[in-house]
């Protein structure tokens, strides 16, 4: 789907939320849901930041690090991709206190989700770097650049463009898995929907509103990433840009 039709969907979802909120007594649910959505957004944003950082570090270690770092990176990736996100969250939340390590739920949430998505991201980054043509590396050697200069100035910027779409998917995955934090006592959007449902029994409007809010957030990510992709491709592809 192109950006215009995604934007149309976004607008439709926003209108649907407004209409639903305005009908009946549904308005009373909005403050709670929006409060939850705000926490969801905060966890998602910090989690995505952490995911990008760990993914890049892990990929670079795996590709160019000395053997111990390489092994560490492989273990990290396989471990976090091999176990499920909820198990990881529960482990951080329930087991670490057994070892005397206590963390804020927010920290647990960001750490758990960020590291989980970062493990998938590491493979995206690795693929992106490896996808850059060998000739580019050779050109940097011919220009006498160091490996680090080449990576930073030539290889990573090109890999970046190729990585935008898969990262868009991963950000959406992360946004969706923020719902899991409702199971470790955090009052995110899903948690708010559940509690509101528990005492009002207005199941259908509440959950529909919550679903629509998630849809709005996902669409925002998708549109943002599409825009970013188009912007970074400017000039690099024939028939675009200047």
């Amino acid at each position: 789907m192109g950006i215009p039709s995604l934007a149309a969907m976004l607008a439709t979802a926003l209108i649907a939320i407004a209409v639903l909120a305005a009908s009946g007594d549904n308005a009373i649910f909005m403050p709670g849901l929006l409060e939850g959505a705000w926490l969801t957004v905060r966890i998602a944003v910090v989690g995505c930041g952490l995911a990008v950082i760990t993914a890049t570090a892990a990929a670079l270690c795996r590709l160019y690090g000395p053997a111990p770092l390489r092994w560490l990176a492989v273990t990290y990736v396989e471990f976090f991709r091999g176990t499920s996100a909820l198990v990881q969250l529960f482990w951080l939340f329930f087991v670490l206190p057994d070892f005397g390590i206590f963390m804020e739920p927010f920290t647990v949430a960001v750490l758990g989700l960020g590291l989980n998505v970062g493990a998938y991201g590491a493979e995206v980054v690795r693929g992106g770097i490896q996808g850059v043509q060998r000739g580019q590396w050779e050109a940097t050697t011919a220009l006498n650049m160091t490996r680090w200069q080449a990576l930073r100035r030539i290889i990573l910027p090109q890999a970046f463009v190729a990585m935008i779409p898969p990262w868009g998917n991963l950000f959406i995955e992360l946004l969706k898995s923020t719902a899991l934090v409702s199971l470790i006592t955090m009052s995110d959007l899903t948690f708010k929907a559940r509690t509101l449902n528990d005492f009002s029994m207005q199941t259908i409007p509440i959950f529909t509103l919550a679903l629509l809010m998630y849809l709005v957030l996902s669409l925002t990510i998708t549109i943002g990433m599409r825009w970013l992709e188009r912007k970074s491709l400017r000039g690099m592809v024939r028939g675009r840009g200047r």
Binding site: Q133, G135, A139, L143, M145, Q149, I154, Q158, M236
Partner: peptide
């Protein structure tokens, strides 16, 4: 640093302008 090379398939940096390609190494290296 005494040697320069031109490749069969150019190997220009696609994310930089012609000028950007030419100033990159002089600046960083």
């Amino acid at each position: 640093s005494k040697i320069g090379m031109v490749f069969q398939h150019f190997n220009l940096f696609p994310h930089m302008t012609a000028l950007g390609n030419c100033i990159e190494a002089p600046m960083t290296v």
